[in-house]
């Protein structure tokens, strides 16, 4: 008999099996929703598909009667701006500090333990401090994202740079490169694939910190909206918002993976 570890699905099977859990969850939801609604047509916990349609139309296609904004899109815009600024600053810091720590023994001796301790502070625990110091505006939310993921990226890049074969660093010196050129022409390009990987892994935590800070103090944003409508048990808004956030995160992950394959042909890997 063929061992289970040696049985492989064909291409059609892979597609079918991949979709199966999504279909199953949807079917289970529809059955449960139908059962609850037949008992109480005003049930808010598991809305019917038509309610989602109404909610999405109300949020995305019609202006809010009070502010005149299309809330779905203004929330998305506000959240994405915070997320991208936070990710950009964290990535820049991760790259600069990471390369410096990985390449220069004196800086490593001085700052590696500090960065290690920094990365162990639970970011949400310092959110109150950020609100006190930076106020309730945009800065504190962006700083939370940066604080949450930059230390991880610094350590990851530092490890990647330190793992560059000693031979390459020596070779660069025998070709006349100085420390700055070794950093920019060797350490930087060689650690970029790792940076993209670290960025992809950081997307989840970045969204977490964004939504947490929006939930606590904001006047717009995807996280703010979810926590606002929670008061009215508006599952018809919350669930589409959650699905939308998930989709945004998924698209960002796929785009990063694609960009990595295209930008780093020299690794000889096909991404993943």
């Amino acid at each position: 008999m063929t061992r289970l570890v040696n049985k492989r699905p064909g291409r059609g099977h892979i597609l079918f099996l991949g979709l199966l859990p999504f279909v199953l969850v949807t079917v289970v939801y529809l059955i449960a929703s139908d059962a609850r609604l037949s008992e109480n047509p005003n049930d808010k916990l598991l809305p019917a598909l038509s309610s989602f349609g109404d909610a999405i139309e109300r949020m995305a296609l019609r202006p809010d009667p009070r502010s005149g904004a299309y809330l779905w899109w203004s929330d998305t815009w506000a959240s994405l701006v915070r997320l991208f600024i936070g990710l950009a600053i964290a990535t820049g810091l991760g790259l600069i500090v990471g390369i410096a720590l990985g390449l220069i023994p004196y800086l490593r001796a001085a700052f590696q333990p500090f960065v290690a301790v920094l990365s162990l502070i639970p970011p949400l625990a310092i959110l109150p401090i950020l609100f006190i110091v930076f106020g309730l505006g945009e800065v504190s939310k962006i700083v939370l994202i940066v604080f949450g993921i930059a230390p991880f990226m610094m350590r990851d890049i530092a490890i990647a740079v330190a793992a560059i074969p000693r031979e390459l660093v020596i070779k660069a010196q025998t070709l006349g490169a100085n420390s700055w050129q070794i950093a920019t022409r060797l350490a930087l390009p060689l650690s970029l694939p790792r940076l993209i990987a670290a960025l992809r892994l950081s997307l989840g935590p970045a969204w977490l910190f964004l939504i947490a800070s929006e939930a606590i103090a904001a006047t717009d944003g995807l996280g703010y909206r979810i926590f606002l409508v929670r008061r009215y048990l508006a599952m018809d808004v919350i669930l589409p918002y959650v699905a939308w956030i998930t989709l945004l995160a998924f698209v960002m992950d796929v785009l990063l993976a694609r960009a990595a394959v295209r930008a780093f042909r020299w690794t000889g890997e096909d991404g993943g």
């Binding site: 031979e167 020596i170 070779k171 010196q173 060689l190 780093f264």
Partner: peptide, 21 residues
């Protein structure tokens, strides 16, 4: 006291930069 262009080197492995053509 440190490696420089007066002395070239070729190792068994890792002798060329993988990210450059």
């Amino acid at each position: 006291p440190e490696p420089g262009p007066d002395r070239g080197v070729v190792y068994q492995r890792y002798s060329v930069f993988p990210h450059l053509t």
